[in-house]
Design a protein around this nucleic acid. Structure first.
Lengths: 226, 226
DNA sequence: CGGTATCCCCCGCGATACTG
DNA sequence: CAGTATCGCGGGGGATACCG
């Protein structure tokens, strides 16, 4: 990337961090993704070529290390101390974005991304023992992005884009924007349920506990300004 | 700028903040610059065209407002609440850069920028009463970037690139890298003076007090890692 | 799954010149 | 001083196809 002709630490850090997609990749890594395609699910619009480039740049900058998988299938990408400390920057930017960034526009509404984000923020300890299958239907999404399933088992949550082969325990039906706003903390979950923008079908205890085990975005509690 | 197809607050903030030069402009504004050419002195390698564009984008994003000068000479650029809150991001990035960014390279060594940075970080209250004229000579810089003067009067410090017409009270003579490292907190001022990489000529009390009124970068106390 | 390799387009940006 | 106008290029990155 371009340089700025300054030895200011902000300028030097900017060389790496302000490249396109970089902060979102770092966000995924800090959220726990280690595999190439896991990162891609959190940054779906990036091309494979560019993602690889960015990961190499992060390695060169000392923020992560590649570790070959035992089975030979690609690498594992692990943050270094330097990479983990980027969390402070993500926190500051996320907080500012939550308070001051522009409103959500239709082009931002990627249903798959929303589900991927949600799958990291489910408190499985508040769910019934055993497996729980959640089905999410986005009423305003095109067929290919309309249905998703979350398979919750122990403290693990998997995302499926096809019926997982188990019966659904709870179905969540909503348009994308409503759930997006709730996720961001701009909307209110209980209100959207009671006014029918989000409908729940399934086991009664799951329905009742839903607002308790869906944890929302880590920035949701920060109030949007203006 | 490009969008990312996500409504994540980090993604939305990135649209504005990761554009080229943007963070450095915000740094200048947060450091106190209000006029077009003051900002340019802190970001000397940006073109006027692009700087104007960036300022307009910041205004559109709600981070600053333009206020026409009374005398009609251009605008004053004033940060809004949103713009001032960007300081948190600058702090996090600067801290990370100080700890983990690459080493200083020769292309980063802009003498004029260094002097501009220094002029904001001089504790005039620890200087003698009345005017104090500092002359800085960069022994390894080309003629046009070799000499600078700092005019200190009351709590005001001005940068001159020509002899200001007053006698010099203290001359600081050094190569750029040495002073850059001291500024960043990577080198140590007193050590560089005692070993002759930085030489001082002038009034004795000014020489003695020099390390006390030169405040260094706000990140200087953060130790570089690795 | 985890990447490479190529092609090609567009537009971001630098450089320069000009203006009120 | 504080910009505006114009031009031209370089390469960043999107799209697509392919591979071990």
């Amino acid at each position: 990337m371009s340089t700025f002709g300054q030895f200011c630490p902000i300028a030097l850090a900017s060389e790496i961090l302000t490249q396109k997609w970089m902060l979102l990749i770092v966000r995924e890594l800090n959220a726990g993704s280690k595999r190439f395609n896991d990162i891609r699910r959190g940054v779906p619009r990036i091309s494979a070529t560019l993602l690889k480039q960015r990961l190499d740049q992060l390695e060169l900058a000392g923020a992560l290390i590649k570790k070959p998988m035992d089975n030979g299938a690609g690498d594992e990408y692990l943050l270094t101390d330097a990479g983990r400390e980027l969390k402070n920057i993500l926190g500051a930017i996320g907080e500012w974005g939550q308070r001051w960034a522009r409103d959500i526009s239709p082009e931002d509404l990627d249903p798959g991304w929303l589900v991927w984000a949600m799958h990291r923020r489910i408190d499985t300890s508040r769910m019934p023992k055993g497996r729980t299958v959640l089905e999410i239907e986005f009423t305003d999404a095109p067929k290919s992005q309309r249905f998703f399933w979350l398979l919750c088992h122990k403290d693990n949550v998997d995302v499926c884009i096809k019926p997982p082969g188990y019966d659904t325990d709870l179905t969540i039906k909503t348009d994308v924007l409503t759930l997006a706003k709730v996720w961001r903390g701009i909307g209110e979950l209980k209100k959207e349920i009671s006014c029918g923008h989000i409908t729940l079908e399934g086991k009664n205890d799951l329905k009742k506990q839903f607002p308790n085990w869906l944890l929302l975005s880590i920035f949701a509690k920060i109030k949007k300004q203006k």
